[in-house]
């Protein structure tokens, strides 16, 4: 049985433990960033950040402040389009580990042409892969496959203090996701699970995706 994540955004406090833990575990160097009027930094996913927390705020119909946090990462799609596109050019450049469900970029990805890389990036419905121009490799979340294969939690899930992130067998996570949705709906009637059937990383969102991030959900 493959694994899945539940990311319950209604529990996230944007402490960014996940963002930093991911970076540290993968030994990724720091980017030089600037303050541009938001806490969201680095501003986007990049070869040195496989995971970032996105911040977005708005006023609800009663004039109350709503501040949404979206810990963004690869969804490890059940049928990964990136893999299908990459396979057409270089088979094995992106693989899916059937046991865990992890979608992984391999060294073969270095053989992808500029055009192939662009095609893979454009194919992703969630705007995830980024090109590391130094290594000419696509970069993205690897589900901490090294940890998962050793029976450990992915670093982001392990680090999350508030229970916003869970990880486990897919059927257990689906079950948990439904339970959490039932609870959250009491307060947020519009809450939904973003594309449960297609992804291994299931987001529980309290309202429409425009209040989180354009690519928070496929639809």
């Amino acid at each position: 049985m493959p694994k899945s994540f539940l990311v319950d955004t209604t529990r996230c406090t944007a402490c960014r433990g996940c963002q930093l833990a991911c970076k540290e575990w993968h030994d990724l160097p720091a980017n030089e960033t600037k303050q541009t009027g938001t806490h969201q930094n680095p501003p986007d996913l990049n070869p040195y950040n496989y995971k970032i927390v996105r911040f977005r705020e708005h006023l609800d119909e009663k004039g109350n402040v709503v501040w949404n946090f979206f810990p963004d990462q690869c969804r490890h799609c059940v049928i990964p389009i990136c893999k299908e596109v990459a396979d057409m050019a270089v088979p094995g450049a992106i693989v899916k580990d059937e046991r865990t469900g992890a979608v992984l970029v391999t060294e073969k990805a270095a053989q992808l042409s500029e055009a192939d890389i662009k095609a893979v990036i454009d194919a992703c419905p969630y705007n995830i892969p980024r090109l590391d121009t130094k290594t000419h490799l696509l970069t993205k979340c690897d589900m901490c496959a090294d940890r998962v294969q050793a029976g450990m939690l992915p670093m982001c899930v392990k680090t999350c203090p508030t229970g916003a992130m869970s990880f486990g067998e897919r059927d257990e996570i689906l079950d948990l996701a439904q339970k959490r949705l039932d609870v959250v709906k009491q307060k947020h009637p519009k809450a939904y699970l973003a594309y449960v059937r297609d992804v291994s990383v299931i987001y529980l969102l309290a309202e429409e995706k425009k209040y989180y991030y354009e690519y928070a959900s496929f639809m």
């Binding site: 963002q19 930093l20 720091a30 980017n31 030089e32 303050q35 009027g37 938001t38 930094n41 680095p42």
Partner: peptide, 28 residues
């Protein structure tokens, strides 16, 4: 710690849209 400086690199001042407008200041 470069990884933390990356997440919050520079000093900021949080202010309302109303004050910003009064002072002719834009985000950033």
């Amino acid at each position: 710690v470069p990884n933390l400086l990356e997440a919050e690199p520079q000093l900021y001042v949080e202010m309302s849209h109303e004050l910003a407008e009064e002072k002719g200041i834009k985000n950033g």
